[in-house]
Amino acid sequence: MWKDYWCAGTSRSYWLLSGALGVAYVLAMMLEVQLDASTPTPLRVLAAVFPALLILGLAAVEFRRIRNTDELRQRMELEAGMLALAIGVPVLTAIGLLNEAELTGIPFIMGVPILLLIYIAAQVWTHRRYQ
């Protein structure tokens, strides 16, 4: 049943594309943390903007997958997305402000993984709700 849930609306191209974008994002993040003030500015700008483009790509792939699912699953995705937004934005804001106040030192690049974890937890919750 869980396989049906997590694989709903997916295809081989979905897994290939999302996998490639995910790996590219991790590599881009690894490159990003290697850069310092001695790195040429155009390369630093590119390294800073590129992950955002990858996230947009991942969002587009996910959007297409959701459109291929049935109406209940679309509702569940909507609820999970809104829940993740409602919890994720305050959490990320709090982390940002705590960092600003130098009370925590959570790297900025952890924002996306944290949001992703909250989204997955929200999906599990909505899945159980309609079971």
């Binding site: 049935d70 109406e71 209940l72 309609y130």
Partner: peptide, 22 residues
């Protein structure tokens, strides 16, 4: 009906009301 088994179960248990087309 080209929907998931979970959708049928959710309708039967009253947890989900189907759309008009469904």
């Amino acid at each position: 009906l080209a929907v998931s088994r979970q959708t049928i179960n959710a309708i039967e248990t009253g947890k989900y009301d189907p759309s008009l087309p469904l």
